[in-house]
């Protein structure tokens, strides 16, 4: 039996792993795909204290190696469900693992545009990762849909590669200011189409155009583009536990800053937790809190 099972090997799960191993706990990390989570797709991380400029891949790999070298078991298996009890069980396709405490760090995944038939263009003009796919659109016209930090960073990255970059955002103005947003506004090959939604994606074998519709006037604008980069936020991956753990209407797990869920001994950290700010730093902060509170919980059971 393990002391702590951590579900997810993104920044919050791996931070929880580091703290738990350093507290001399027997730890298992279960990850369905690969380590790193969403940060893996980030070109440059410039807001993590202590690192002036590091790629998302390098950050994730350093973090993974740091955690792995502390001796936990790390298995790449998809968790199907969690069973509560004095001894908690985590069920994967081929195995059942037992632990005194569980930390859920299953994160979130990119939100898809709610347009019928859009999956037809996945990998054929629609992308969710500018750093991965940007070079396929060298010298071409593209659009980014979204208005958060990720959308702005992706648009800036693409503006160095592409002929033209449109940014389609549903609000009239951005809710924040950043160095990258200021840089983007100065780029001559960037156009902002604000107060608009993407309502249609069109093409034969691959994406050829999109239609943006003004929220108020309903006026439609056709943009002839080769690529559409979607950055409209994320959706939580909480279906493994939402039968026993309280989630909010969007599917995020309810827990305050102490990372405690409605079930004793089950903790939550990172993007999957209901909270205001989802950043790399806050994910790691959550991982720290969840681990420390899981260790305290285990101590009370002795």
């Amino acid at each position: 039996m393990y002391d702590i099972i951590i579900i997810g090997a993104g920044p919050s799960g791996l931070t929880a792993c580091i703290y738990s191993c350093l507290a001399n706990k027997k730890v298992l990390v279960l990850e369905k795909e690969t380590y790193g989570g969403q940060i893996l797709k980030t070109n440059k991380v410039r807001n993590y204290p202590g690192f002036e400029n590091i790629s998302g891949y390098d950050f994730a790999t350093n973090l993974y190696n740091q955690a792995k070298n502390l001796g936990p078991d790390i298995k790449f298996e998809e968790v199907l469900r969690i069973n509560n009890g004095e001894i908690k069980k985590v069920i994967t396709k081929n195995n059942t693992y037992e632990a005194k405490a569980i930390i859920i760090a299953s994160g979130s995944t990119t939100r898809k545009l709610p347009i019928a038939g859009i999956e037809k263009f996945d990998g054929k003009g629609i992308s969710y990762c500018a750093t991965c796919d940007g070079n396929f659109y060298k010298g071409k016209d593209v659009a980014v849909v979204g208005g958060g930090n990720t959308a702005i960073d992706e648009a800036l990255y693409l503006s160095d590669i592409c002929n033209k970059v449109y940014i389609v955002y549903r609000r009239k103005e951005f809710s924040f200011n950043s160095i990258n947003l200021e840089k983007l506004k100065e780029r001559k090959n960037v156009s902002f189409i604000l107060n608009s939604n993407v309502v249609s994606v069109n093409g034969e074998d691959k994406l050829e155009s999109i239609i943006a519709e003004d929220v108020d006037t309903k006026e439609k604008t056709t943009l002839e583009i080769n690529g559409l980069f979607v950055a409209i936020g994320s959706v939580p991956v909480s279906d493994i536990c939402n039968d026993i753990i309280d989630t909010n209407e969007s599917g995020y797990i309810k827990a305050s800053e102490d990372c405690k869920t409605n079930i004793d001994g089950i903790f939550v950290c990172g993007d999957i937790r209901e909270k205001q700010v989802r950043q790399l730093t806050t994910a790691c902060s959550d991982g720290t809190t969840a681990s420390i509170n899981a260790c305290k919980y285990i101590a009370t059971k002795k």
Partner: peptide, 13 residues
């Protein structure tokens, strides 16, 4: 490609 993080991890798999 060499600059794609998910590609680097998939290479190991």
């Amino acid at each position: 490609t060499d600059w794609c993080g998910p590609c680097k991890l998939f290479s190991k798999v």
